[in-house]
Design a protein around this nucleic acid. Structure first.
Length: 188
DNA sequence: AACTTGATGGTCT
DNA sequence: GACCATCAAGTTC
C-alpha cells in the first residue's frame, strides 16, 4: 500500500515559488477534513501585492516567523484566508483544493452547496475546513494540520494572481490544469 | 457567460 | 477615510 509522506518543516525553507509549485497535489487536512491542493499563489516581500511588502505589523507577524507555520487573516471583514509561511516575508496563499476527506462536514459547513464549490476559493476553503484566527502561527506539521506530499504528478499551469491591483501581472498563481475545483479556470 | 452589487469589519494612513 | 490576496446572488447579454 502507498503511503504519502508527511511534509517536513524544511520543505518551507526554500524559495516561495518552488514551494508553491511543489504544493500542488499535496493533501491538506484540518482535523481530518480536506483534500489535495489544486490552486495556490505566491507572495513575497519584494511584491507590492504582499501583506509583507511594508514590513512587519500585528496582522502579518506570522509571515516573518519561522518557515512552516500558518498565516491566517480575515479579508473584507468576512472571510478567512490561509497561507503557508516560507522564508521570512514570503508565503503561499491556499486558494482551492479537491474535497476528498470529510465531505459531510464540509457540506454542512458550506450550507449544502455543490461539491465543486466547497473549497473553490480561499474564503470557501477556510469555511469548509473551519479555519480561523485560532490557526494563525500554528505549525503545519502538528495537529490539527496534516500535510502529505503529492503522490503523483499533476499538469501545473501558471498565471496572474486573483483579486489584486498591485503586481497584477506577476504570474505567481499555480493550479492544476482543467481541475473542476479551481476558484477560476487557469488559462492555457 | 460576463458583469454588477451588497454584505461586513479589520488594518493602516 | 480608503483599501482590501472574497463570496453569492442578482442582472444583463
Amino acid at each position: 500500500m502507498h503511503m504519502m509522506p508527511t511534509i517536513p518543516r524544511s520543505f518551507f525553507d526554500r524559495p516561495v515559488l518552488d514551494v508553491a509549485r511543489d504544493l500542488i497535489g499535496a493533501t491538506l487536512l484540518v482535523d481530518g477534513v480536506g483534500g489535495p491542493l489544486v490552486e495556490v499563489e505566491a507572495y513575497d516581500e519584494t511584491d507590492p501585492a504582499s501583506h509583507s511588502f511594508r514590513g512587519p505589523t500585528a496582522r502579518n507577524a506570522a509571515m516573518f516567523g519561522p518557515p512552516g507555520i500558518a498565516y491566517v487573516y480575515k479579508i473584507y471583514g468576512i472571510h478567512w484566508c490561509l497561507n503557508f509561511v516560507c522564508r521570512p516575508g514570503s508565503a503561499v496563499l491556499i486558494r482551492a483544493l479537491e474535497p476528498t476527506h470529510g465531505l459531510d462536514q464540509m457540506r454542512q459547513r458550506r450550507g449544502g452547496l455543490a461539491d465543486r464549490q466547497l473549497c473553490s476559493g480561499p474564503g470557501k476553503l477556510c469555511e469548509a475546513l473551519a479555519i480561523d484566527r485560532r490557526h494563525d502561527h500554528v505549525p503545519l506539521d502538528q495537529p490539527p494540520f496534516t500535510l502529505l506530499a503529492a503522490d503523483r504528478d499533476h499538469p501545473i499551469v501558471t498565471g496572474p494572481r486573483i483579486g489584486i491591483t498591485k503586481g497584477a501581472d506577476t504570474p505567481w498563481r499555480f493550479g492544476v490544469q482543467n481541475s473542476p475545483f479551481l476558484s477560476r479556470p487557469m488559462k492555457g
